[in-house]
């Protein structure tokens, strides 16, 4: 492989990281504020993709616009889910299995709804953007990837502003950093939790729509992305939005380069092999286990970790 090809891969990895970050950030805010491992995230991603598809097919709305429209719609949907299901969970400072299984049950329901509405076959959103590409020197990039990347980054920036400038963002960050102190100074945790769940769901729907423009999807669409989201938020230290960006880049680069980097292998003598492309899906899963075991406090935790075995 020559330098141009590596540059090409790096560029693709960075573009991928953008949408990965948008995908994982919804899960992070929910975990941060409520300590809920939101397995239903996969379902929200799937619904987001179908939302953009329906908008596109029925009303001829551009999928990018569809993705933006998903934000308010899924925000309300998330608040509704919180009101019906999530608020009955008892508060906990540590994630409970009950919350995990509850969200998993909801994921199964969402998936089934997906199958009932849209059947089992793969669908994809095809727009003029999908097939055209931009040529930069020897590198060609699909336009849709660029557009998706820009949309994701813009949305992340807006989120950062909301988190740091608004009343809601401040109370959210307060709850993440110190729930007790936050409640003492008068943060309404129930209301903030409801808004946070809405926000997390909104981002999931938005990211799902973006992913739907890049990949074909079925009602079972969310699961591999769910696990990728886990890898990202664990890499990012579970609770910080900026950590998510870092985690997304790390995962996207590792995944993209996994089949392009020769791996040393010893069998009677040293030699180099490439990971067969069919094994590429293993990378995020293996990384998930590795990251959880080796650096449970994320990349940042590596620098000041207190190691305690078992």
């Amino acid at each position: 492989m020559d330098a141009v090809e590596y540059l090409d891969l790096l560029l693709k990895a960075l573009l991928l990281a953008g949408v990965y970050a948008a995908m994982a950030v919804g899960m992070t805010v929910i975990y941060g504020v409520m300590k809920i491992v939101n397995l239903a995230h996969a379902g929200f991603l799937m619904l987001g993709a179908y939302f953009a598809l329906e908008m596109f097919q029925r009303f001829h709305i551009d999928p990018i616009l569809g993705a933006v429209m998903a934000l308010p719609v899924f925000f309300l949907f998330g608040m509704l889910v919180h009101w019906i299901l999530v608020r009955w969970l008892p508060k906990s400072d540590t994630p409970t299995l009950a919350s995990l299984l509850l969200m998993f049950g909801f994921l199964l329901v969402l998936q089934n709804v997906g199958y009932l509405l849209w059947g089992t076959e793969d669908q994809s959103i095809l727009t003029p953007l999908t097939l055209s590409s931009v040529q930069i020197g020897e590198i060609s990039i699909a336009k849709v990837k660029l557009v998706v990347f820009v949309a994701a980054v813009v949305c992340m920036i807006v989120l950062q502003i909301v988190l740091h400038r608004s009343w809601f963002g401040r109370s959210m960050r307060a709850l993440i950093q110190n729930p007790y102190a936050a409640k003492i100074v008068g943060v309404d945790d129930q209301r903030t939790a409801r808004l946070t769940f809405g926000l997390g769901t909104a981002f999931a729907g938005f990211a799902g729509a973006l992913l739907g423009m890049l990949y074909s999807f079925s009602p079972d669409f969310g699961r591999p992305f769910l696990l990728r989201s886990f890898v990202i938020i664990v890499l990012g230290g579970l609770e910080s939005v900026s950590g998510v960006a870092l985690g997304a880049i790390v995962l996207a680069v590792l995944e993209t380069f996994s089949t392009a980097i020769p791996l040393p292998w010893y069998w009677h003598k040293w030699s180099f092999y490439y990971l067969p492309p069919s094994y590429q899906p293993v990378v995020p899963f293996a990384l998930l286990v590795l990251v959880l075991v080796i650096m449970p406090k994320g990349l940042a935790g590596l620098f000041n970790r207190k190691w305690k075995a078992a």
């Binding site: 540590t94 886990f230 899906p281 293993v282 293996a286 286990v289």
Partner: peptide, 23 residues
């Protein structure tokens, strides 16, 4: 490796393992 993790982290790790093994 996975029994070093507790609670939901163990759960998530088992999801990763089962997906990797299937691939």
């Amino acid at each position: 490796p996975t029994f070093r993790l507790r609670g939901p982290y163990f759960v998530i790790a088992t999801i990763g393992v089962t997906e990797a093994v299937r691939v």
